[in-house]
């Protein structure tokens, strides 16, 4: 990522980290207060070290934000036009598709109890490969063969050799 875009991303990250660290700080201090209310010492509390980590995360976020501002980043890039440009970019589309495929595999295909692991995995692999591969007959046949072999190896390797119950 080029430096200007990196610093803009850092600006957004620093805001997220600030919110995150404040949330963690509040929850950690609550834990410390609960410990004290039970008559125990502050250093026994489960919230002690998280409080320290939250504080340092906050400070690091401030430092990151300061560096981003000093390198010329500001919030003016947050416009609808830029958002549309990002969504239409190839990198975003590719990332979105792959994350979507993984989500489909993990949250839809694998949890279906009547669909065996072999079929879920074949569907995932085939869909993944066919989206990013050439669409001619030779490539499709090659993809099918590779998916069958790969699925077979994963099923045999984990299910039979390693004796792991497959999802």
């Amino acid at each position: 990522m080029e430096k200007k875009a990196m610093r803009r991303a850092d600006l957004i990250t620093s805001v997220v980290l600030l919110i995150y660290s404040i949330g963690m700080f509040v929850m950690s201090v609550n834990l410390v207060l609960k410990t004290l209310s039970k008559g125990r010492m502050w250093y026994q509390s489960a919230g002690l070290f998280p409080t320290i980590v939250a504080t340092f995360t906050f400070l690091c976020a401030i430092s990151l934000m300061r560096t981003a501002f000093k390198d010329g980043a500001d919030f003016s890039f947050l416009t609808m036009d830029n958002a549309k440009k990002l969504i239409k970019s190839k990198e975003f589309k590719v990332s979105f598709i792959i994350i979507g495929l993984l989500a489909m595999y993990i949250f839809i295909l694998l949890p279906i109890t009547w669909l065996r692991y072999e079929f879920s995995t074949f569907i995932f692999l085939f869909t993944f490969m066919i989206i990013f591969n050439k669409k001619d007959i030779k490539s499709i046949i090659k993809t099918i063969v590779i998916c069958i072999i790969a699925t077979g190896m994963l099923t045999y390797g984990f299910g039979q050799l390693a004796m792991i119950p497959l999802p």
Binding site: L101, I106, T121, F124, L154
Partner: peptide, 12 residues
Amino acid sequence: YLMPIVAALSVI
């Protein structure tokens, strides 16, 4: 061909 297999391997 390689990376989808890596993804499936990561899951299992």
